[in-house]
Design a protein around this nucleic acid. Sequence first.
DNA 1: ATGAAAGCGCTAACAC
DNA 2: GTGTTAGCGCTTTCAT
Lengths: 340, 340
Amino acid sequence: MKSPTRTPTLEDVAQVAGVSRATVSRVINGQASVDVALRRKVLAAVEKIGYRPNNAARQLAGRRTGTVALVLSGSDGSAEEVLSDPFFGRITGGVVKHLRTQGNHPTLFLADSEATRLEAVDHVRRGASDGALLVSTHADDILPGLFVEAGLPAVLFARPALHAPISYVDLAHEVGASLAADRLVSRGRRKVVTIAGPTDVPAAQDRLTGFRKAMARHGHPHIPVAYGNFTRDSGETAMLQLLARVPDLDGVFAANDLMAAGALRALRDAGRTVPAQVAVIGFDDSAPARTAVPPLTTIAQPLEEMAAEMSRLLADQIETPGQDPQCTIFDPHLVERDSA
Amino acid sequence: MKSPTRTPTLEDVAQVAGVSRATVSRVINGQASVDVALRRKVLAAVEKIGYRPNNAARQLAGRRTGTVALVLSGSDGSAEEVLSDPFFGRITGGVVKHLRTQGNHPTLFLADSEATRLEAVDHVRRGASDGALLVSTHADDILPGLFVEAGLPAVLFARPALHAPISYVDLAHEVGASLAADRLVSRGRRKVVTIAGPTDVPAAQDRLTGFRKAMARHGHPHIPVAYGNFTRDSGETAMLQLLARVPDLDGVFAANDLMAAGALRALRDAGRTVPAQVAVIGFDDSAPARTAVPPLTTIAQPLEEMAAEMSRLLADQIETPGQDPQCTIFDPHLVERDSA
DNA sequence: ATGAAAGCGCTAACAC
DNA sequence: GTGTTAGCGCTTTCAT
């Protein structure tokens, strides 16, 4: 039986329950001051006619949308890869899970071009979402600036390259890198090199700096470095360069797992065994780290918790606009596997 | 300078441009019948005061939300893993990319419990989204039924286990399995076995059936089978069983890449070389297939295209409600790598 | 071609 | 404690 009847409104419920719209509204919104008898009548009426509050009407009358823009942008601008990347996956999962405890949900944006970035901002401007969660792995992102300018609630994953008065969560990258250094040294490595990420990415910078500092503390002031761009191939290339420059190297710290995996490949092709001859440590504890041969020892970020914190900071900001930016820094930990 | 002024409305634009709200509305919505001079005035005013149409108001006045619920549910109910799975990632990417060509965006739902499933339905019921895209890998999903019952626009990825009058896109799984069979046979394999997925998942059924049929055509009416649940570990276990039952096996078709990867591990531990002694073929062309050692020959689904088609079918349904369900079946293709 | 006005469904003052 | 009422910002007849 297909009933072409208009979907029921507050008014309908009021009619059926024999009360006013206001009363129904109060019941729906769980306000205290409603007589128990009436409340039950209303609830019964709601049940009976299958009433659901209309979202648009609610918003228009001054409530939240219950929606948050989740804006993802990878370094390479390729949309499909972003979402297949467990890094974004874990963050997204964490966001969804935390938001829904508040009855909210993320609307997904892939910011892979100027146009799509503007779309995301526009979406929030129109009030289609209450605010935005910005997760980007490239340096030159204009998004934070746009949101700040527009005075729209937004929280970043990772400190922005261009300083801006905006809330964010981040990892203590230097601490992570020093964990790697300590491990390498404690494994008896003396000829250690590193594969760094792009110099314009703050996280890459911090990891390199942290690693150098820690190695210096261990008595190794000079660490040969080659740069990659966080891809497997770039890691392989970097490893090749390093091998040429430092033939007798015995330890490698790569700024992410993908590059570490690339290094593994180069090492294997060069006939070096891991970890016997060369110890390798990655960063991120991503899926490739687990499936690498041998499995990678790596530095893990608590991505889900960080995602939850982002959501929390954003909710805060939506709740109380005009606050000062806040940031939360999380500690990484070492995941011991076979490669080092 | 932070200006605490109320965000501009249609009315404001009208005032500035010296026309009526109606005219502004017409310009905003690109209606033909507006004098060029006025149109320009309006546009100028819009530009000047930075006007953006309010979403809620628009919806309330009878338009679409511009949002679609994307409901993901993995077989195991674990939220984080779902989003780290490239399978869902590619689909999500495809959905985002296609939707945005229409100015729409997906709102993400993880349907990992009864409650979260109902939330997703509710979301659409309240008109917070215009319809839903349902992507589930488990068999007993009640979601399709809920949407059908509620008369809400929805499109499925994959044919539902429980038949329901609902649109979906799917793969010609049997064709895919026969591709695998042909390959194995053409590689000279005579003692072929298969690792199947859960019997209650239609896709798993079809892959098994298709494989058996194809092998029968090649003169092998009986194919030993072990069942897994699409995880790596279950694939390893299944392979072990098969190895015990058919010690001289020389070819394996696994119903997905993860199980194939598990099989690879079991094979290696058993001292068998791949592909020399045993050829292995997976299904899905997922990331693990590429990184497996050796890289897996596998059957690929055009996930992004399928995702786009889902979006298209849904848009259709939203546009013209009350249509008959439609479905589109896509053809898989063989991806040749080293394992077979 | 343009304007006036009637809602869309809900919330929140404000009265009773 | 409950009802009345005035919007929220927009689209859309309906006149003009």
